[in-house]
């Protein structure tokens, strides 16, 4: 629970701009080796852009306006292209949301996984094949020997995502970036895939940057959380304290708005807590981006964007009002 001694990845005041808008502003976070950090937020909040910045795979019209990204002591912002290519796939790898389009439809899965291995390691054809079968076993694809020559269209969505995972962990990366890895999957398949990711992470001692909008996924599979809103990180915390007591009004609103499967809520007796308005309301806001939707908004919130205040236990919140209330019965104030 303590602040990380030597982080594997450290993102320091990262700002990414697109023509016309700023997608990520001053985002700072760190991931320790073998830790899972969940980056949570709604569509368009900048969480995927942040992840792609770490991979240096931003679209050509994006520009890193400021900030540093340190991975294992190396500054990724100044790394050369060949250095980045060596890192990608070997030390940092990525799983994307859509396993349909992330795999090449005309190559067998064995060839596609083998390609990753051979790019980073000198392996004979036979050794590659053996490693691919091992990897398919590792991601719990049954009959790996037979499946190795299958094409993506022979596989179900869940199986495709397992193949993507096999490709991502082929070279035992130190950091795995998983961008909404289960959003396209059904709930029973989602559980299988996330359980697999959890096991692999332990076996391979791999850090995971998990990008998701699903707070249930976060609660079950992450160690720490960073909540993003309109390009900024508004709260960072360990999982247990976060879910026990979210501090930023937006985090609080998100948890309140979600229908929890464990809660005995029903429409006849309970009304869901809404966050009024939409992210679009932040356009033209000079202060806190959440101010137009915030139930606790103060005149001071509108003046300047609140800084991310560091609290005890590695917790941080970008809201001076809730930060000042630490210890006060916060739920009642927002409720």
């Amino acid at each position: 629970m303590n602040p990380i001694p030597v982080p594997l990845l450290e993102v320091d005041r990262l700002t990414v701009a697109f023509p016309g808008h700023v997608a990520v502003r001053e985002a700072s976070f760190a991931i320790a080796p073998a830790e899972t950090l969940a980056l949570v937020g709604e569509s368009g909040c900048g969480k995927s852009v942040t992840a792609f910045s770490v991979m240096r795979l931003l679209p050509p019209n994006a520009r890193v306006a400021s900030g540093r990204i340190l991975f294992d002591g190396n500054d990724l912002m100044t790394a050369s292209r060949p250095e980045m290519r060596r890192l990608r796939g070997r030390h940092i790898s990525l799983i994307q949301q859509e396993p349909m389009t992330s795999l090449n439809p005309v190559l067998s899965i064995g060839v596609q996984i083998g390609e990753v291995l051979r790019r980073h390691e000198r392996l004979s054809r036979r050794a590659t094949r053996a490693r691919v079968v091992e990897l398919l076993d590792l991601v719990k694809i049954p009959d790996a020997h037979r499946r190795i020559d299958d094409y993506p269209h022979n596989l179900s969505g869940g199986m495709r995502q397992r193949v993507m995972i096999a490709m991502a962990v082929a070279c035992h990366p130190k950091l795995l970036i998983a961008d909404e890895p289960t959003t396209a999957l059904d709930v029973t398949t989602q559980a299988q895939v996330l359980d697999l990711l959890g096991d692999l992470r332990r076996e391979l001692a791999m850090a995971v940057l998990l990008i998701t909008h699903d707070l249930g996924v976060v609660a079950q599979w992450a160690d720490r959380i960073a909540v993003m809103y309109a390009g900024r990180i508004v709260e960072r915390a360990s999982i247990v304290p976060f879910f026990a007591r979210p501090m930023h009004p937006y985090s609080h609103g998100l948890l309140g708005a979600r229908v929890d499967v464990d809660a005995e809520e029903h429409y006849l007796t309970d009304r869901l807590t809404e966050i009024p308005g939409s992210v679009g309301s932040a356009a033209g806001e000079t202060g806190c981006s959440f101010a137009p939707r915030c139930p606790m908004v103060q005149p001071s919130c509108r003046l300047a964007p609140p800084p991310l205040l560091e609290l005890a236990d590695g917790r941080a919140v970008a809201c001076p009002i809730t930060a000042a209330q630490t210890g006060a019965p916060h739920g009642a104030a927002v409720g």
Binding site: V187, T188, Q190, A191, L194, D214, L215, G216, V217, V218, A219, Q220, W221, I239, V240, F243, L255, R258, D260, V261, D262
Partner: peptide, 9 residues
């Protein structure tokens, strides 16, 4: 039911 992730960590 078992597959739905709970928000209680």
């Amino acid at each position: 039911f078992a597959a739905v992730p709970s928000t209680d960590p």
